[in-house]
Amino acid sequence: MTVPPRLAVLLAAVLLLGGLSAWAVVHAAARAESRGLPRAGEPAAGPGAVTLATGQGRRMLFRTMAWGPHRDEVVSVPADDPGGPRVSSGVRCLRFHASSGTGACLQAEHGPLGDTYRAVVLDARLRERRAFPLAGIPTRTRVSPSGRMAAWTVFVSGDSYAGTNFSTRTSILDTRTWSLQDNLETYRVLKDGRPYHAADVNLWGVTFADDGHFWVTLATGGRTWLARGDVAARTLTTVRQNVECPSLSPDGTRIAFKKRVPGLPEDAPWRLYVLDLRTMRETPVAERRSVDDQAVWLDARTLGYALPGDFGADIWTAPADGSGAPRRLLSAALAPVVVE
Protein backbone atom coordinates (compact mmCIF):
# COMPACT_ATOMS: atom_id res chain seq x y z
CA MET A 1 0.00 0.00 0.00
CA THR A 2 1.17 3.50 -0.70
CA VAL A 3 0.58 6.27 1.76
CA PRO A 4 -2.61 7.91 0.40
CA PRO A 5 -4.78 4.74 0.53
CA ARG A 6 -3.46 4.00 4.01
CA LEU A 7 -4.36 7.50 5.14
CA ALA A 8 -7.78 7.13 3.54
CA VAL A 9 -8.39 3.91 5.50
CA LEU A 10 -7.20 5.61 8.68
CA LEU A 11 -9.43 8.63 8.08
CA ALA A 12 -12.46 6.44 7.40
CA ALA A 13 -11.76 4.46 10.58
CA VAL A 14 -11.33 7.62 12.66
CA LEU A 15 -14.69 8.90 11.36
CA LEU A 16 -16.42 5.59 12.00
CA LEU A 17 -14.94 4.99 15.46
CA GLY A 18 -15.34 8.66 16.36
CA GLY A 19 -18.98 8.52 15.30
CA LEU A 20 -19.57 5.39 17.38
CA SER A 21 -17.88 7.00 20.40
CA ALA A 22 -19.91 10.19 20.00
CA TRP A 23 -23.12 8.18 19.77
CA ALA A 24 -22.26 6.26 22.94
CA VAL A 25 -21.51 9.47 24.85
CA VAL A 26 -24.64 11.30 23.60
CA HIS A 27 -26.78 8.27 24.42
CA ALA A 28 -25.33 8.05 27.95
CA ALA A 29 -25.73 11.81 28.44
CA ALA A 30 -29.40 11.65 27.45
CA ARG A 31 -29.92 8.77 29.88
CA ALA A 32 -28.19 10.77 32.63
CA GLU A 33 -30.49 13.72 31.93
CA SER A 34 -33.59 11.55 32.09
CA ARG A 35 -32.59 10.55 35.62
CA GLY A 36 -33.25 14.14 36.63
CA LEU A 37 -36.93 13.75 35.70
CA PRO A 38 -39.39 11.99 38.03
CA ARG A 39 -40.84 8.75 36.76
CA ALA A 40 -44.22 7.17 37.37
CA GLY A 41 -44.31 4.50 40.06
CA GLU A 42 -41.47 6.04 42.03
CA PRO A 43 -41.72 7.55 45.49
CA ALA A 44 -42.26 11.29 45.07
CA ALA A 45 -40.08 13.83 46.82
CA GLY A 46 -40.54 17.54 47.47
CA PRO A 47 -38.42 20.11 49.28
CA GLY A 48 -39.03 20.87 52.92
CA ALA A 49 -37.39 21.13 56.33
CA VAL A 50 -35.36 18.08 57.35
CA THR A 51 -33.80 18.12 60.79
CA LEU A 52 -31.96 15.82 63.13
CA ALA A 53 -33.53 17.53 66.14
CA THR A 54 -35.25 15.40 68.74
CA GLY A 55 -38.88 15.68 69.79
CA GLN A 56 -40.26 16.01 66.28
CA GLY A 57 -41.68 12.51 65.93
CA ARG A 58 -40.08 9.26 64.96
CA ARG A 59 -38.84 9.42 61.36
CA MET A 60 -36.39 7.89 58.95
CA LEU A 61 -33.73 9.81 57.09
CA PHE A 62 -31.95 8.25 54.11
CA ARG A 63 -30.48 8.92 50.66
CA THR A 64 -33.23 8.73 48.06
CA MET A 65 -32.19 7.11 44.79
CA ALA A 66 -35.49 7.77 42.99
CA TRP A 67 -35.08 9.62 39.71
CA GLY A 68 -35.98 13.28 39.68
CA PRO A 69 -34.54 16.58 40.81
CA HIS A 70 -33.99 15.35 44.37
CA ARG A 71 -32.07 12.20 43.46
CA ASP A 72 -29.28 11.38 45.94
CA GLU A 73 -30.53 13.92 48.49
CA VAL A 74 -31.08 13.10 52.16
CA VAL A 75 -34.84 12.84 52.63
CA SER A 76 -37.15 12.25 55.58
CA VAL A 77 -40.28 10.12 55.93
CA PRO A 78 -42.42 9.39 59.03
CA ALA A 79 -41.36 6.07 60.57
CA ASP A 80 -44.97 4.84 60.57
CA ASP A 81 -45.49 5.78 56.89
CA PRO A 82 -42.22 4.86 55.11
CA GLY A 83 -43.95 4.78 51.71
CA GLY A 84 -45.29 8.31 52.11
CA PRO A 85 -44.05 11.50 50.44
CA ARG A 86 -40.36 12.15 50.92
CA VAL A 87 -39.27 15.53 52.27
CA SER A 88 -35.94 16.39 50.68
CA SER A 89 -33.23 18.40 52.38
CA GLY A 90 -31.24 19.64 49.38
CA VAL A 91 -28.13 17.92 50.80
CA ARG A 92 -26.66 15.29 48.46
CA CYS A 93 -24.85 12.37 50.09
CA LEU A 94 -23.49 9.09 48.80
CA ARG A 95 -23.44 7.74 52.36
CA PHE A 96 -25.17 9.20 55.41
CA HIS A 97 -25.53 8.54 59.11
CA ALA A 98 -26.70 10.61 62.07
CA SER A 99 -27.05 10.47 65.82
CA SER A 100 -27.98 12.96 68.55
CA GLY A 101 -28.08 15.97 66.23
CA THR A 102 -24.84 15.28 64.36
CA GLY A 103 -24.88 14.11 60.75
CA ALA A 104 -22.05 12.58 58.70
CA CYS A 105 -22.40 12.91 54.93
CA LEU A 106 -19.91 11.53 52.41
CA GLN A 107 -20.44 13.38 49.17
CA ALA A 108 -18.99 13.78 45.69
CA GLU A 109 -17.80 17.05 44.22
CA HIS A 110 -17.87 17.09 40.45
CA GLY A 111 -14.72 18.50 38.90
CA PRO A 112 -13.40 18.74 35.35
CA LEU A 113 -10.95 15.91 36.02
CA GLY A 114 -13.35 13.56 37.72
CA ASP A 115 -15.10 13.49 41.04
CA THR A 116 -13.41 14.21 44.32
CA TYR A 117 -14.97 13.27 47.61
CA ARG A 118 -15.37 14.87 51.01
CA ALA A 119 -16.77 14.02 54.37
CA VAL A 120 -19.08 16.70 55.75
CA VAL A 121 -20.14 17.01 59.39
CA LEU A 122 -23.70 18.37 59.54
CA ASP A 123 -25.51 20.11 62.37
CA ALA A 124 -29.08 19.31 63.41
CA ARG A 125 -30.45 21.42 60.53
CA LEU A 126 -28.18 19.62 58.06
CA ARG A 127 -25.96 22.66 57.63
CA GLU A 128 -22.28 22.07 56.99
CA ARG A 129 -20.13 22.48 60.09
CA ARG A 130 -16.85 21.31 58.63
CA ALA A 131 -15.65 19.25 55.65
CA PHE A 132 -12.66 16.96 55.17
CA PRO A 133 -11.20 15.76 51.85
CA LEU A 134 -11.39 12.00 51.22
CA ALA A 135 -8.75 9.81 49.60
CA GLY A 136 -11.16 7.64 47.62
CA ILE A 137 -14.67 6.43 46.97
CA PRO A 138 -16.96 6.55 50.04
CA THR A 139 -18.37 3.27 51.33
CA ARG A 140 -19.28 3.47 55.06
CA THR A 141 -19.90 6.13 57.68
CA ARG A 142 -21.15 6.15 61.27
CA VAL A 143 -21.70 8.70 64.07
CA SER A 144 -21.27 7.71 67.74
CA PRO A 145 -24.46 7.51 69.85
CA SER A 146 -23.63 10.83 71.58
CA GLY A 147 -23.07 12.58 68.26
CA ARG A 148 -19.50 13.53 69.17
CA MET A 149 -17.44 11.08 67.08
CA ALA A 150 -17.71 10.30 63.37
CA ALA A 151 -15.99 7.62 61.31
CA TRP A 152 -15.80 6.85 57.61
CA THR A 153 -14.27 4.36 55.21
CA VAL A 154 -13.30 4.95 51.59
CA PHE A 155 -11.95 2.70 48.85
CA VAL A 156 -8.49 3.60 47.62
CA SER A 157 -7.88 2.09 44.21
CA GLY A 158 -4.92 0.44 42.54
CA ASP A 159 -2.27 2.29 40.64
CA SER A 160 -1.00 0.04 37.87
CA TYR A 161 -2.03 -1.16 34.45
CA ALA A 162 -5.43 -2.83 34.76
CA GLY A 163 -4.87 -2.36 38.48
CA THR A 164 -7.14 -4.45 40.63
CA ASN A 165 -5.58 -3.83 44.02
CA PHE A 166 -8.16 -2.20 46.18
CA SER A 167 -7.62 -1.14 49.72
CA THR A 168 -9.63 0.78 52.28
CA ARG A 169 -8.86 3.71 54.46
CA THR A 170 -10.78 4.38 57.64
CA SER A 171 -10.69 7.63 59.61
CA ILE A 172 -12.14 8.75 62.94
CA LEU A 173 -13.02 12.35 63.73
CA ASP A 174 -13.70 14.01 67.06
CA THR A 175 -16.22 16.77 66.26
CA ARG A 176 -15.58 18.50 69.57
CA THR A 177 -11.84 19.04 69.09
CA TRP A 178 -11.89 18.50 65.29
CA SER A 179 -8.90 16.21 65.67
CA LEU A 180 -8.85 13.68 62.85
CA GLN A 181 -7.22 10.26 63.04
CA ASP A 182 -6.74 9.99 59.32
CA ASN A 183 -5.68 6.36 59.07
CA LEU A 184 -6.70 3.71 61.60
CA GLU A 185 -4.02 1.44 60.14
CA THR A 186 -1.55 3.35 62.31
CA TYR A 187 -3.20 1.84 65.41
CA ARG A 188 -1.33 -0.97 67.18
CA VAL A 189 -2.94 -4.26 66.25
CA LEU A 190 -3.22 -7.16 68.68
CA LYS A 191 -4.23 -10.23 66.71
CA ASP A 192 -4.96 -13.38 68.70
CA GLY A 193 -3.31 -11.68 71.66
CA ARG A 194 -0.03 -10.81 69.92
CA PRO A 195 1.22 -7.62 68.24
CA TYR A 196 0.68 -7.83 64.50
CA HIS A 197 1.68 -5.76 61.50
CA ALA A 198 1.32 -6.43 57.80
CA ALA A 199 1.23 -4.39 54.62
CA ASP A 200 -2.14 -5.82 53.66
CA VAL A 201 -4.06 -4.79 56.80
CA ASN A 202 -7.33 -3.15 55.82
CA LEU A 203 -9.99 -1.74 58.12
CA TRP A 204 -13.57 -0.86 57.31
CA GLY A 205 -17.00 -0.37 58.79
CA VAL A 206 -16.63 1.33 62.20
CA THR A 207 -19.56 1.07 64.62
CA PHE A 208 -19.28 3.06 67.86
CA ALA A 209 -19.95 1.69 71.34
CA ASP A 210 -19.28 5.08 72.92
CA ASP A 211 -17.04 8.06 72.17
CA GLY A 212 -13.88 6.17 73.09
CA HIS A 213 -14.58 2.66 71.84
CA PHE A 214 -15.72 1.07 68.63
CA TRP A 215 -15.89 -2.15 66.63
CA VAL A 216 -14.48 -2.51 63.13
CA THR A 217 -13.62 -5.08 60.45
CA LEU A 218 -9.94 -5.94 60.24
CA ALA A 219 -8.76 -7.82 57.14
CA THR A 220 -5.37 -9.34 56.45
CA GLY A 221 -4.13 -12.34 54.50
CA GLY A 222 -7.51 -12.84 52.83
CA ARG A 223 -9.42 -13.24 56.14
CA THR A 224 -11.51 -10.87 58.22
CA TRP A 225 -11.83 -10.34 61.96
CA LEU A 226 -14.08 -8.39 64.26
CA ALA A 227 -11.77 -6.01 66.13
CA ARG A 228 -12.40 -3.84 69.19
CA GLY A 229 -10.91 -0.36 68.89
CA ASP A 230 -9.78 2.05 71.59
CA VAL A 231 -9.50 5.68 70.42
CA ALA A 232 -7.34 6.93 73.30
CA ALA A 233 -4.97 3.95 73.43
CA ARG A 234 -4.93 3.69 69.61
CA THR A 235 -5.23 -0.08 69.70
CA LEU A 236 -7.21 -2.66 67.77
CA THR A 237 -7.80 -6.09 69.32
CA THR A 238 -9.20 -8.93 67.24
CA VAL A 239 -12.06 -10.82 68.83
CA ARG A 240 -13.54 -13.19 66.30
CA GLN A 241 -12.95 -14.32 62.73
CA ASN A 242 -15.18 -13.93 59.65
CA VAL A 243 -17.03 -10.76 60.64
CA GLU A 244 -17.53 -7.86 58.23
CA CYS A 245 -19.33 -4.54 58.57
CA PRO A 246 -20.30 -4.82 62.25
CA SER A 247 -23.26 -2.83 63.54
CA LEU A 248 -23.74 -2.58 67.30
CA SER A 249 -27.26 -2.77 68.71
CA PRO A 250 -28.56 0.30 70.61
CA ASP A 251 -28.16 -1.56 73.96
CA GLY A 252 -24.59 -2.57 73.07
CA THR A 253 -25.16 -6.30 73.53
CA ARG A 254 -25.37 -7.59 69.96
CA ILE A 255 -23.53 -7.03 66.69
CA ALA A 256 -25.22 -7.46 63.30
CA PHE A 257 -22.68 -8.31 60.61
CA LYS A 258 -22.22 -9.90 57.23
CA LYS A 259 -20.57 -13.30 57.30
CA ARG A 260 -18.82 -15.04 54.43
CA VAL A 261 -20.57 -18.42 54.19
CA PRO A 262 -18.83 -21.32 52.39
CA GLY A 263 -20.49 -22.68 49.28
CA LEU A 264 -21.99 -19.39 48.11
CA PRO A 265 -21.06 -17.81 44.75
CA GLU A 266 -17.85 -15.79 44.73
CA ASP A 267 -19.63 -12.56 43.86
CA ALA A 268 -22.40 -12.95 46.47
CA PRO A 269 -20.74 -14.68 49.42
CA TRP A 270 -22.39 -13.05 52.46
CA ARG A 271 -25.28 -13.75 54.82
CA LEU A 272 -26.55 -11.44 57.53
CA TYR A 273 -25.91 -12.69 61.11
CA VAL A 274 -26.26 -11.33 64.62
CA LEU A 275 -23.62 -12.05 67.26
CA ASP A 276 -24.55 -11.95 70.93
CA LEU A 277 -21.53 -10.42 72.68
CA ARG A 278 -22.33 -12.05 76.03
CA THR A 279 -22.62 -15.62 74.82
CA MET A 280 -20.63 -15.15 71.55
CA ARG A 281 -23.37 -17.10 69.79
CA GLU A 282 -24.29 -16.31 66.18
CA THR A 283 -27.85 -16.26 64.87
CA PRO A 284 -28.62 -16.14 61.13
CA VAL A 285 -31.12 -13.47 60.09
CA ALA A 286 -34.11 -14.66 58.06
CA GLU A 287 -32.81 -12.91 54.93
CA ARG A 288 -31.58 -15.59 52.48
CA ARG A 289 -29.98 -13.27 49.92
CA SER A 290 -26.38 -12.10 49.99
CA VAL A 291 -26.20 -8.77 51.86
CA ASP A 292 -23.34 -6.41 51.08
CA ASP A 293 -24.09 -3.59 53.50
CA GLN A 294 -23.42 -2.42 57.03
CA ALA A 295 -26.82 -3.07 58.59
CA VAL A 296 -28.51 -0.48 60.86
CA TRP A 297 -30.64 -1.10 63.93
CA LEU A 298 -34.02 0.52 63.27
CA ASP A 299 -34.97 -0.28 66.88
CA ALA A 300 -33.78 -2.71 69.57
CA ARG A 301 -35.12 -5.73 67.65
CA THR A 302 -35.14 -4.81 63.96
CA LEU A 303 -32.44 -4.55 61.30
CA GLY A 304 -32.43 -2.50 58.09
CA TYR A 305 -30.10 -3.22 55.18
CA ALA A 306 -29.74 -2.42 51.49
CA LEU A 307 -30.22 -4.85 48.61
CA PRO A 308 -29.92 -4.09 44.89
CA GLY A 309 -33.15 -2.66 43.48
CA ASP A 310 -34.62 -1.15 40.34
CA PHE A 311 -33.20 2.28 41.13
CA GLY A 312 -29.89 1.21 42.59
CA ALA A 313 -30.92 -0.08 46.00
CA ASP A 314 -33.92 -0.73 48.26
CA ILE A 315 -33.98 -0.92 52.04
CA TRP A 316 -35.23 -4.20 53.50
CA THR A 317 -35.91 -5.08 57.08
CA ALA A 318 -35.89 -8.27 59.16
CA PRO A 319 -36.06 -9.14 62.87
CA ALA A 320 -32.64 -9.39 64.53
CA ASP A 321 -33.46 -12.62 66.37
CA GLY A 322 -33.66 -14.67 63.17
CA SER A 323 -37.46 -14.99 63.27
CA GLY A 324 -39.99 -13.74 60.71
CA ALA A 325 -39.31 -12.90 57.08
CA PRO A 326 -37.58 -10.05 55.28
CA ARG A 327 -39.80 -7.21 54.09
CA ARG A 328 -39.13 -4.27 51.77
CA LEU A 329 -39.28 -1.09 53.81
CA LEU A 330 -38.18 1.63 51.36
CA SER A 331 -37.73 1.50 47.61
CA ALA A 332 -35.00 3.50 45.84
CA ALA A 333 -33.21 4.21 49.11
CA LEU A 334 -29.81 3.79 50.75
CA ALA A 335 -28.18 4.50 54.14
CA PRO A 336 -31.23 4.81 56.41
CA VAL A 337 -31.15 6.06 59.98
CA VAL A 338 -33.96 6.42 62.52
CA VAL A 339 -34.28 9.80 64.29
CA GLU A 340 -36.64 10.29 67.21
Binding site: L94, G114, D115, G136, I137, T139, F155, S157, G158, S160, Y161, A162, G163, T164, N165, F166, S167, T168, N202, W204, A219, G222, D267, D292, P308, G312, A313
Partner: peptide, 20 residues
Protein backbone atom coordinates in the same frame (compact mmCIF):
# COMPACT_ATOMS: atom_id res chain seq x y z
CA UNK B 1 -8.26 1.59 34.81
CA UNK B 2 -9.23 5.09 35.94
CA UNK B 3 -12.98 4.44 36.13
CA UNK B 4 -12.90 0.78 37.15
CA UNK B 5 -12.99 1.33 40.95
CA UNK B 6 -15.82 3.85 40.60
CA UNK B 7 -17.66 1.51 38.23
CA UNK B 8 -17.37 -1.44 40.62
CA UNK B 9 -18.36 0.51 43.73
CA UNK B 10 -20.88 3.05 42.41
CA UNK B 11 -21.98 1.54 39.10
CA UNK B 12 -22.34 -2.10 40.12
CA UNK B 13 -22.55 -1.65 43.89
CA UNK B 14 -19.82 -4.24 44.52
CA UNK B 15 -17.25 -4.37 47.30
CA UNK B 16 -14.01 -4.95 45.44
CA UNK B 17 -11.95 -5.79 48.50
CA UNK B 18 -9.76 -8.80 48.10
CA UNK B 19 -10.10 -8.50 44.35
CA UNK B 20 -6.37 -7.83 44.16
Amino acid sequence: TAVLPLYLVSGLGLSPLGFG
